[in-house]
Each structure stands twice: as C-alpha cells, then as structure tokens.
C-alpha cells in the first residue's frame, strides 16, 4: 500500500520532470542567458576572437536567438560540444539549442528525440588532399588513408561512396576537427573529409593553404541547421522564425546599419512593418517583445551580412554563396512569409 503510493508519487514526479523541459523559453528568460551548443573550434563558424569572445557564422545564429528572446545578443553561454556528445547534451537539457554544423537527417530528426527547425547552411561532403599527390578526382583515391570525424553523417557517406565505387580505403577516426587537421598535416592520412564548408574553413588556417585542394566530387547533401529538443514546439518556433527573420531581412535589404531607421516609422511595405513591429503584433504570438527582430538585426545583422563577415569570399574561408544565396538569386534560402 505504502509502496504503491510512493511509486505513484514517483511517477507523477517523473512526468512533471518530463513536462518541465517543455518550457525552454521560460527557462532561458528566468536564467537570463541562452545555453547554446557550439562547435569546439572551426574557423569561420565558431571560434574565439582575440578577446576570447566567440565569433562565427553558427555563433551569430546563437546570438540572434539570444537577442530575440532576451534582447541581448551577448547573453549567450557557449557550450563547446564534440560531434559525439552534441545530441546527447541537447537531449539531456544541457543546452537550449544546438547550432553546430549538424546535418538534418531522418534518423536524427525522428529517432534521437530532436527536431531540426531549419537550414542555415546547405552543404555537401567533399575531400581535401595535398596538391602534390596529383589526384584530380575522388575516384582516384583507391587505397588512400582517410581522416574522418567520428559520430558524423560523413562517416556513413564515406563508407557508401567507397563501397559504391568499389575502391578501398583506410579510415582513421578522429574525435575533433583540430585532431583531424593535425593528423592530415602530419601526413598520417592522405585525405581529410568533412563538409566542404568545414574543409574550406580548416584549409583557411593552414600555413600554406594553396598546397591543398578540395576535390570536385560532392558526395552527399549536408543541410546544416539548428536543432532543438522534440516536444517543445513553442521554442522550436522561436528558433525557426529567428532564422527566417535573418533571411527575410536580407531579402528586404534590412541591415544592422539601417534597421533602427526603418523601424522608427511604418514603411509602405506591410511585411517589413509586421517584422519590425510597427504593425500587428507578431512578436507577442511567439511570447517575445514586438521589437524582437529589430534587436536581432541590429546586433548581428542579416543573413547576408553574417555570411560575408565570417565565411564569405572576402574572408580567409572564402566560400561563395552558391546554394546559400537568396531564392531570388538562384539559391535555396527562402524565408516563409511574415503574415
């Protein structure tokens, strides 16, 4: 009798614990900071600057979410995660959102208890080799030793690519990008494989970046995007629409420089008015302030600004917009309408 009451209490407590995780926004606002799972170090995407502040393409999205929910882009606590620990850390509630070059796949979306809410970078897996090896195609890599980060989708694509092309290889598993870079530069592996953006970012840090070439084959689709826990739809919506806000701002040519000016009075474009809170109350529907997008854009800029600042063609990483251009310019970046 006593035991059953006890167990019953436990069951209720367990249920309550389960439900408690479905209020991420309230938790973040009560804490006053956003816990963002980030890369432990990848040039252009997440790296500490000279003052120790985290910077980068993925980091900017974290800051945007913090600006939207807390009004302060600096109120982010970055939790560096390896490719192996990232999903577990998110599922266990150690971070509120994961923005760490994570590929959206069926298994991850459905089997891990997580939700991908969008894509901030459309990528594909590639191979990097030394120029003096004289290799011009990934199909010539028979017998090569390949460095690969464990716990990634690239690991599976790599196995598939070599099996389908009936060529052999030797995998050398590494735990982090830094370790892969060290092994590759020491010549312990002939090839380094990961998402092409990651290869470009890694190559940008090499002493002689020109001695290395990224092979033309793109062997997979790697849509990278922010991830939240499954079950907290309100929080998922906030992250998703923050990303859309960055994209829509670029589309409407709202930049960090002019956003305050545009927001000061209603314009003749109703979507811009709704976004910037001069018309309607979209912010309240997400549980945020009406000037949430103003906060986001004024602190981190729009998607195009972020891209050019950290990974664009004028940076050492030097990536072209390609698939990540706005849909109006032939890319895949397409913000849903703010109606």
């Amino acid at each position: 009798m006593k035991k059953s009451i006890f167990l019953g209490t436990l069951a209720v407590a367990g249920l309550a614990a389960g439900l408690a995780s479905a209020q991420t926004l309230a938790d973040v606002q009560a804490r006053g900071s956003l816990k963002c799972g980030s890369n432990e170090g990848l040039a252009g995407f997440a790296f500490p600057d000279a003052n120790g502040n985290m910077q980068g393409f993925d980091v900017a999205l974290c800051r945007a979410i913090a600006a939207a929910t807390l009004g302060d882009a600096q109120a982010v606590e970055f939790v560096p995660l390896t490719s192996q620990t990232r999903f577990t850390a998110l599922a266990a509630g150690e971070v509120d959102v994961l923005v760490r070059n994570s590929t959206w796949t069926f298994t991850r979306d459905n089997d891990l208890g997580l939700d991908f809410v969008g894509v901030n970078y459309y990528d594909g897996q590639g191979f990097m080799v030394r120029k003096d090896l004289g290799v011009s195609s990934a199909r010539e890599l028979d017998g090569a030793t390949v460095c690969i980060q464990t716990g990634t989708t690239t690991e599976l694509n790599l196995a598939d690519f070599f099996r389908v092309n009936a060529i052999s290889y030797e995998p050398v598993p590494v735990a982090t990008n830094a370790e892969g870079q060290q092994q590759y530069l020491a010549g312990a592996c002939d090839v380094y494989t990961t998402d092409i953006s990651g290869l470009a970012a890694t190559r940008a840090t090499f002493e002689n970046a020109g001695d290395h070439v990224i092979l033309p084959e793109v062997v997979s689709k790697e849509p990278l995007g922010p991830v939240v826990r499954h079950g907290d739809n309100a929080w998922g919506d906030i992250v998703r629409w923050t990303l859309f806000a960055l994209l829509a701002a670029e589309e409407h040519e709202i930049t960090s420089a002019n956003v305050r000016e545009i927001a000061s009075a209603a314009t003749d474009n109703p979507e811009i008015n709704r976004m910037l809170g001069t018309e309607g109350e979209l912010g309240q529907k997400l549980g945020l302030s009406s000037d949430w997008i103003v906060n986001v854009i004024s602190s981190v800029g729009n998607y195009g600004e972020i891209f050019e600042a950290y990974i664009g063609e004028n940076t050492p990483v030097g990536l072209a917009r390609g698939l990540n251009a706005q849909w109006t310019n032939g890319g895949l970046m397409y913000a849903m309408p703010f109606n």
Partner: peptide
Amino acid sequence: QNLAALGK
C-alpha cells in the same frame, strides 16, 4: 518516464 517524454 523521461525516455517516454522524449518519444524514445
């Protein structure tokens, strides 16, 4: 319980 809450 927590696994069930996560849908696992």
